[in-house]
Structure formats: structure tokens, C-alpha cells
Design a protein around this nucleic acid. Structure first.
Lengths: 130, 130
DNA sequence: CAAAGGTACTTTGCTATGCAAGGTACTTGG
DNA sequence: CCAAGTACCTTGCATAGCAAAGTACCTTTG
């Protein structure tokens, strides 16, 4: 059964654009937070929220599972004095290496976007003075 | 009864991470390039490639269609002296407004990530001096 | 004009992944 | 036992990047 005609219906609003922009960067940010020392999911949620990077459970848990399966993370169960046990995560050696590579990617990307923005500003200046 | 963990087989390599990071930012970069003046797809590919933002036809054309359908872009056909006619794109007023909002989103995001990176560096310094 | 080659735009099928919502499981206190 | 709190997990869907294949138009060459 064929799908709808190719309407490309979208939710092209700024909220959705923000969601799209965050994609892929979450992974980087989470590795960063874990790199500082053992943390469990709620710690990460707090950390990221305080840095204004919105992330929810339904995103975080599958992501942690993927990173664990990829060998970038390891965890141990730790009893809590007030509730169920928690999974405390740490980076593996592969994870540390991966984080370094991602940081380079991020810095390159941020630089590239800065280049785009600057070129636009240059173009506007040229228009004004001509 | 706890179920078995799900496998979540992934391609957790740095190339894929780079792809993920670019998502959502492409839209912003393309709006930027178009904001400078009328361009057609090959112009955009050249511009973005020269800023080291990799993008291919299979990504660009559907994205342009989405942006057009969302009312952010408009285009006109222009004859070429050497080949088939080209679609020259411009931003609509909505598109300009949207670009402004996206730029704010980008700057916020870049700042948030910078905060994360700085906090990690602070944590490492504290570890060393303790 | 027919074939070949170049340029430009489009579509298909697949995959990854964010997310809302709902579910499972353990602990403590009444 | 039941209710509330905390923590971790799963399901189902939508978005969007991408490789590759397809369509269409134009120019050049014989």
C-alpha cells in the first residue's frame, strides 16, 4: 500500500527547529556530563536542564542504552537509601576517545556556522555601501 | 519479571555522529545562504561545501521543498544559457523572520554547549588540584 | 535530426533517533 | 495491603538525512 502523495507536510515552526538543532548534540553533551564522574540518569537530566539543553527520559534512556551497547559507557548498580537502585555510568576508554572526536566535530561545526553567519553579514554590508 | 535488555544495534561511529550533529543546522545554514540573494541549488551546494558543511542533493532538494511548502521560501524559474532552467530561491517575509528566530536558537545552543564544555574543564581542574 | 553527455530537479526506500505516553519495578510510610 | 515516590524501560510514531535511481531539458557532435 502506497503512502500519501508527497506533500511534505511539515511543522515548520521554531519549536520544531529547535528540536532539530539539538539532535546529535545531546549525545555529545551527555558524554561530557558523564566524563566528569559517575552519574545516574536523574543527575544528567538536572545537569542538562541547568545548561538549558532540554532532554526527557524517553530520549535519555534509549540513548544511554545505545552508548552502552556501543561500548562507550559502562555502569554499575548502586543501592539508594531512598528508592530503587540506580545505574551509575562512567566512560570507557573508547568513550573518552569518542568524546574527544565529537568535541573536535562540534568545534568544527560551530566554526563553520560562524563562517556562514559572517559571510551573510559581509554580504549585507556590501549591499548597503553600494 | 524483567525483560532482557534490548540490543539497540547502532552505528556508533564518528561519521554517524557528525551526520547527527549537522541535522537541524542545515536548515539554518541554507536559509542564511538564501538570505544573501537569489541562488539555485548548485550555488547552495558550493557555498555550504566551501564552509565545510557537507550536504548532498538527496538532502537539499527535499529540504527546499519543505521550506517552500512552509511558506519560508519562494522561487522563480530562470533560463540558463547552458542547460536546463534553474529554480532561483529567495526568502519570503516569513522566511526572514524565521531565520532571525533560528539564529537566536543557534546562539543559545552554542552558548549552552560552551557552558557544558567549560564545566567539564572546571571539574578536571578541581580533580587535579585536590 | 539522432545520439551522447552535461546539468538540474525529483523521488524512492531505508535508517536513525527524538519524544509522548504508558509500563515495570523497587522502597518507604500509613 | 495500599499509596506515593523514585528510577529505569518500552512502544509507536514522526521527522529528516542520505544513497541511488529516475525524469527532463539543453547543447554539442556527426
Amino acid at each position: 500500500m502506497r503512502k500519501h502523495p508527497q506533500t511534505h507536510e511539515t511543522h515548520m515552526n521554531i519549536e520544531n527547529a529547535q528540536v532539530q538543532m539539538r539532535k546529535g548534540i545531546l549525545e555529545f553533551c551527555i558524554l561530557h556530563v558523564i566524563s566528569r564522574g559517575e552519574v545516574y540518569a536523574s543527575d544528567m537530566l538536572d545537569e542538562l536542564t541547568s545548561a538549558r539543553i532540554m532532554v526527557v527520559e524517553g530520549t535519555l534512556y534509549p540513548l544511554l542504552t545505545r552508548l552502552k551497547n556501543a561500548g562507550l559507557l559502562d555502569y554499575k548498580w548502586v543501592e539508594s537509601s531512598s528508592g530503587p537502585p540506580r545505574k551509575y555510568y562512567v566512560l570507557t576508554d573508547d568513550g573518552k576517545q569518542f568524546l574527544t572526536a565529537m568535541q573536535e566535530t562540534w568545534l568544527d561545526l560551530a566554526d563553520s556556522v560562524q563562517t556562514i553567519i559572517r559571510k551573510t553579514n559581509d554580504a549585507i554590508q556590501t549591499q548597503k555601501t553600494s
